[in-house]
């Protein structure tokens, strides 16, 4: 299955965006860090994704966006 329109999603996210939440909810990472995280709730369309570790083996783009 392809992931069409990811670019459009970025743009959509940009249009929907105001500013990011300033309240940190997780560790801040730098280039070179290897973040670890186990999801507490089901990830939408995650097909059973439990943690960031499950994503290893492929490059992963984590996009922070907003619905407002």
């Amino acid at each position: 299955m392809k992931t069409p329109a990811i670019t459009a999603l970025f743009v959509g996210g940009a249009l929907a965006a105001a500013t990011a939440s300033t309240e940190p909810t997780a560790d801040t990472v730098e280039v070179g860090s290897k973040p670890s995280y186990s999801f507490r709730q089901s990830v939408l369309n995650g097909q059973g994704l439990q943690s960031l570790a499950d994503l290893k083996g492929k490059p992963t783009l984590v996009d922070f966006w907003g619905t407002k």
Partner: peptide, 30 residues
């Protein structure tokens, strides 16, 4: 699509405003 969605923030990066992103390599490194 194969894109996934969550409301849990697994980590933060030093970036202002949204959207912003982090690219992780195949070994999970930022």
């Amino acid at each position: 699509t194969s894109a996934m969605w969550t409301t849990e923030r697994p980590f933060n990066v030093e970036a202002r405003g949204i959207p912003h992103f982090a690219l992780l390599g195949v070994d999970g490194e930022v």
